[in-house]
Amino acid sequence: MPTPSTVSIACPQHGAQDIAVEPTGSNQWQVTLPNGTTLPVTLTAPAGPDGKATFTVGNVQFATQAALTNDAIHLWLNGRLLVLPRPKQGPQRAGSSAAAGASGNAIVASMPGKIISVHAKAGQAVTAGEVLVVMESMKMELSLAAPCAGTVDAVNATEGNTVDQGAVLVSINADEAS
């Protein structure tokens, strides 16, 4: 018999929400929210290859569309896009955030794009706020600055290369906080 499992959903206002889901029949589930609310969910119109599906949640009907990207499910729900991380292979940890982007001691590409210039070398001393990488995407230029004072540990950015969002471009050994 299926057993309940827990899913973590990032809510724009309340952060990660742990939600219990229990299959109750064919295309039917019972969902328990962190606030204790329990809602029955039923798939009411068959899901097609075009990504459209209709559900009833409690007594509200939803016509949804969904598509898979490389790392996420894009869900169109009530006129807005929800990006749901795709289940990963192996055991899942609830609430683990996708990209460990804002690492305190690194410069991370905050958008996908092309590296225009690099102003950092390994071993170089930098001050907080110093622009170390300039990148460009879709006609927009973005300057990326050192998040802290310290010494450049490694540089993974090369002028002219394109990088993905979240790529670590420069890592910095922070000065001991005074």
């Binding site: 939600i19 929210l33 559900f55 949640v57």
Partner: peptide
């Protein structure tokens, strides 16, 4: 309701 549905689809 939206949160519940997102959980199912995710």
């Amino acid at each position: 309701e939206e949160l519940a549905l997102a959980a199912i689809i995710s």
